[in-house]
Amino acid sequence: ATNIVGKVKWYNSTKNAGFIEQDNGGKDVFVHKSAVDAAGLHSLEEGQDVIFDLEEKQGKAYAVNLRIK
């Protein structure tokens, strides 16, 4: 899926990971530091509006192509 709108639920820069809550009510999506880095960002803030694509690896959904809304 592409161009999904959501809000950062939480992001821990020590653990280099967090979750994004989908505005469409879907399951929360894992976001890794690699996606944050690829977006040219240093970190994510709780409640921040984002747009992202979903990629599945080994049955788990990940946020990729992250951008700030």
Rank of each mutant, 00 (worst) to 15 (best):
D23V: 15
T14H: 13
K27W: 08
T14G: 11
F30R: 05
K9C: 05
I4L: 15
F19A: 07
G59L: 04
I51P: 00
G26E: 09
F52S: 00
L54F: 05
H32R: 07
D49G: 14
E45G: 08
F30Y: 11
A35L: 03
G6D: 00
G6V: 02
A1G: 11
N12M: 08
F30A: 05
N24A: 10
L54C: 09
N24E: 08
K69T: 12
Y11V: 09
Q48M: 14
E21D: 05
K69P: 14
H42R: 12
H42P: 12
G47D: 04
E55S: 09
K33E: 04
L54R: 06
K9T: 03
T2R: 13
S43W: 12
K9P: 00
L54M: 11
K60D: 05
N16I: 03
T14P: 06
V50K: 00
V5E: 11
E21W: 10
K27N: 10
Q22A: 09
G40D: 05
L54T: 05
L41D: 01
Q48T: 10
N12E: 06
D49W: 15
A61G: 08
I4D: 02
A35S: 09
E21N: 08
L66H: 01
N3I: 03
R67K: 09
V29K: 01
Q48F: 07
N65L: 02
A17T: 10
K9W: 02
E45V: 14
I20D: 00
L41G: 03
K9M: 04
L44P: 01
N24T: 09
V31A: 02
V5G: 11
K27T: 09
V64L: 04
Y62H: 08
R67A: 04
G25V: 05
K15Y: 14
E46F: 11
Y11H: 02
S34D: 09
G26M: 09
K7F: 06
G25A: 06
G47C: 07
G47S: 05
Q58N: 15
T14W: 13
V31R: 00
G40E: 05
A61K: 14
A17R: 11
I68N: 05
Y11G: 01
V8R: 00
K15F: 13
V64Q: 04
V8Q: 00
K69F: 14
K60Q: 09
A35P: 01
N24F: 09
E21M: 14
V64Y: 06
F19K: 07
S34Q: 09
K69L: 14
S13E: 11
D49A: 15
E45R: 14
G18H: 02
K15I: 13
E56H: 13
G47A: 05
V50E: 00
G47M: 04
N16R: 15
Y62V: 06
V29L: 04
I20T: 00
D23W: 13
L44Q: 00
I51E: 07
F30P: 06
F30T: 03
A35Q: 10
K9G: 02
A17G: 15
K57W: 12
G26Y: 08
Y62C: 08
Q22W: 12
H42A: 13
V5A: 13
T2I: 13
E56K: 11
V50I: 13
A63C: 04
K60S: 06
R67I: 07
G26D: 09
K60M: 11
A61Q: 13
E56C: 14
Q48Y: 06
N12W: 08
V8H: 00
N16C: 13
L41W: 11
S34G: 08
N12H: 08
A61S: 13
A17W: 15
A17Q: 14
Q58W: 14
D28L: 14
Q48N: 06
V50H: 00
E45T: 13
